[in-house]
Design a protein around this nucleic acid. Structure first.
Lengths: 134, 134
DNA sequence: CCGCATCCGCTCGGATACTG
DNA sequence: CAGTATCCGAGCGGATGCGG
């Protein structure tokens, strides 16, 4: 783990200075976009098979139509999702993970598994902290 | 990877309904908090050794004092960071990752490595998408 | 040195109504 | 079915100034 600080200084800290280098920071480039409220959930939903717009809406019951459209568009823009329109009547649109999307999801999976295994500890920590500062 | 949709339906979709179950969704509980603009960066900075407030400020040059304080507080609340005040004159405050924090960081590392290895592909996808929709 | 308080712009995200 | 357009509130996050 001694690589961490090296990583940080070389890969992160160097991007905050004067030059226009911030947009070249790998961590920020990727993390800032999948940190949205719905991105992770949609990647997870699409990880096993493609879905149509309406199906995704039902799978994530509390997402608004607006946010579903916008988040899918962002995921498509980043190259994680492929959007295919079938000119049927009425039209249907399929969303499917690209290879890049599947690759990202595999990395994301480690974090999701951690979340499942440790979220109770996190909730406990929160409760304990809130009690101390009552 | 056939576990994904099962995971989704059981672990995610079920939390959006009528009951007050949303706060019990493991993924949202954890991801929503580390998705902030600075959380990941600070976890990365603290992953190798503890730092004092001012040191962290210098390590992440473009963070404001307000956001540094607030993000560290959130990380402390979730149990990832331990805050220790040394009553010297002037006082000094040390921030250090807890065991839970180190555990989270290990899971996060996979994602950070992915970001380093693939952010160029993401940037290319973005540029290509923006050109198509010019 | 390490914060907290205040103000304030800006983006995220929800609700609703309307197209092809 | 799959969006687009518009409005609007809430909260994130930056800048500045004060306090122990």
């Amino acid at each position: 783990m001694t690589v961490a600080i090296t990583r940080f200084e070389e890969k992160i800290a160097g991007y905050g200075g004067d030059g226009p280098k911030l947009e070249n920071c790998p961590v920020r480039t990727v993390i800032d976009h999948i940190g949205g409220k719905w991105s992770t959930l949609l990647l997870l939903a699409l990880s096993e098979k493609p879905y149509r717009f309406g199906e995704l809406r039902r799978l994530v019951p509390d997402i608004s139509q607006r946010m579903l459209t916008q988040t899918l568009r962002d995921l498509e823009r980043d190259g994680y999702v492929l959007r295919t329109v079938f000119p049927t009547k009425p039209p249907s649109v399929e969303y499917r993970l690209t290879d890049l999307g599947h690759s990202l999801f595999k990395a994301l999976c480690v974090l999701l598994d951690w979340a499942e295994g440790n979220y109770l500890a996190v909730k406990d920590a929160r409760r304990s902290f809130d009690e101390r500062n009552a």
